[in-house]
Design a protein around this nucleic acid. Sequence first.
DNA 1: ATTTGACTTAGATCTCACTCTAATGTGTAT
DNA 2: ATACACATTAGAGTGAGATCTAAGTCAAAT
Lengths: 128, 128
Amino acid sequence: MTKYNHDETFTIGTVAELKSISAYTLRYYDKKGLLPKVFRDKNGIRQFTEEDLQWLDMIKCLKNTGMSLEQLKVFVDATYQGPQTLAARIALLKKQTEKINTHIAQQQSYLKQVNRKIKTLNDEDSLF
Amino acid sequence: MTKYNHDETFTIGTVAELKSISAYTLRYYDKKGLLPKVFRDKNGIRQFTEEDLQWLDMIKCLKNTGMSLEQLKVFVDATYQGPQTLAARIALLKKQTEKINTHIAQQQSYLKQVNRKIKTLNDEDSLF
DNA sequence: ATTTGACTTAGATCTCACTCTAATGTGTAT
DNA sequence: ATACACATTAGAGTGAGATCTAAGTCAAAT
């Protein structure tokens, strides 16, 4: 299901609100080539489709899990090169899941450290 | 146990290696007031103690869980204002644990999203 | 017809967190 | 005594990512 049975489009301002990304940032991403297939109307105004919104979710996801915009561009470019890059894209995403897992483990360890510190502060408190 | 029965001190270069933080960064943190009690010898050379190293671990922990240096400074200042700020420091750290928990949950959700994407790419692959 | 408001661009500016430079000082080894 | 390694400072420079400015276009509403 990569097709949609409606053709509703959104302007950059609407997308900004829907996705909590500023219009500045959306244009910046577009300039960087992270939104390669956003259509323009006859006046050059961007017309975001549902598919573009889903693509934005993917971008947000990868960015928020620590992928740089430069890395993201690699993924975007591969995607728009078509099926012959499928294996590469899958490999890239698998690597990202490893990265996320490592990151989560690290954060859990930090969480323990902060909780230990809270405990020692509570003990210190009880001394007075 | 906040005291140590040995007085070994470390120069900035040694600390940089031990803690994987560049000497530049250590000086930068010091300049920002994040290392308020690092002693200097008669020539002005920093003498890091074991306690300073533990403090650095705390700083690394908080920074790596998303605390800005500015926020960190608040925590550092409170710490060096003594026992009357204990409650505030504990509150601050508890807030940080909430933040870490939220962040971990978010990352787990992103992990699912990437795994779903991998699945759809694999399906797409099997079509050819 | 003109105002309003959302859009467009290129490019300047900002923030954060470093990272480095230049000039200088000190202690140890040869 | 001279070289070397490592330290010091103030302040300049960097890179990533985002945000803003200025000047302009366009379409709908008054």
